Computed example of a mutant assay.
Amino acid sequence: MSENNNEQLKMNTFAKVKGRKKTPLTNAEQEFLPEILGPVFRVIAAGNDPVLVRDEDGNETGEVIARGTYSILPIAGRLANKLTSPLTIKTKGRECIFNRQQCAQLMWTTTFISFEEIKLWVVDGQEGLSAEDVRVVKLSDEELKRIMSGQFK
């Protein structure tokens, strides 16, 4: 976990998704993701998910790449007090930012992360979240209180 105390607090960013005509509900949900999810998350588990690489025709190439997978809990936003289980966000083409030892300790530590370009996807009745990048966020007690009280805009 690399932490740089000189960096300014960087909140989540959300992807600008051009909506499809056939998915107006999903398009509307994407627009409200910042309000629903909030600016930062508490990470409770993380790791790598092996993914088979496919070519343009959808055929497996035999190559396997790792994708970072993070189980998170929103600490602000509309879902913060309503979730009974963690959300999962996967980073495309990026390995987990935590090593094995750090992953084993996440459940017992308070570590905050934020993501770049969060996107909601829906395929065949399944939904999920993906992001382009992830970083550890160091929060002071004052910043944490402010964010949890909903003052993060």
Score class of each variant (00 low, 15 high):
1 M>T: 03
2 S>I: 14
2 S>N: 14
4 N>M: 10
4 N>A: 10
10 K>L: 12
11 M>P: 00
12 N>D: 01
14 F>Y: 13
17 V>A: 01
18 K>R: 15
21 K>M: 01
24 P>W: 12
25 L>F: 07
26 T>G: 02
26 T>L: 12
27 N>S: 12
28 A>Y: 06
29 E>N: 04
30 Q>D: 06
31 E>L: 11
31 E>S: 05
32 F>Y: 06
33 L>S: 02
33 L>M: 08
38 G>S: 09
41 F>Y: 06
41 F>E: 02
45 A>K: 15
47 G>V: 06
49 D>G: 00
49 D>L: 08
49 D>S: 07
50 P>S: 11
53 V>L: 15
54 R>P: 00
58 G>D: 13
60 E>R: 11
60 E>T: 10
64 V>H: 01
66 A>M: 15
67 R>F: 09
67 R>L: 13
73 L>F: 11
73 L>P: 00
73 L>E: 04
74 P>G: 03
75 I>Q: 04
78 R>D: 04
78 R>H: 05
79 L>T: 03
80 A>Q: 04
81 N>I: 02
82 K>G: 03
84 T>D: 11
84 T>S: 14
85 S>K: 11
89 I>M: 03
92 K>E: 08
94 R>G: 03
95 E>Q: 09
95 E>Y: 02
100 R>G: 08
101 Q>Y: 05
103 C>I: 09
103 C>D: 06
104 A>S: 14
105 Q>K: 12
105 Q>F: 03
107 M>H: 10
110 T>G: 01
113 I>R: 04
114 S>A: 15
116 E>R: 12
116 E>I: 05
118 I>E: 01
119 K>A: 09
121 W>C: 07
124 D>T: 12
125 G>K: 07
126 Q>R: 14
127 E>G: 07
129 L>S: 05
129 L>Q: 08
135 R>W: 09
135 R>H: 14
137 V>Y: 07
139 L>R: 03
148 M>N: 09
149 S>M: 08
151 Q>V: 06
151 Q>R: 06
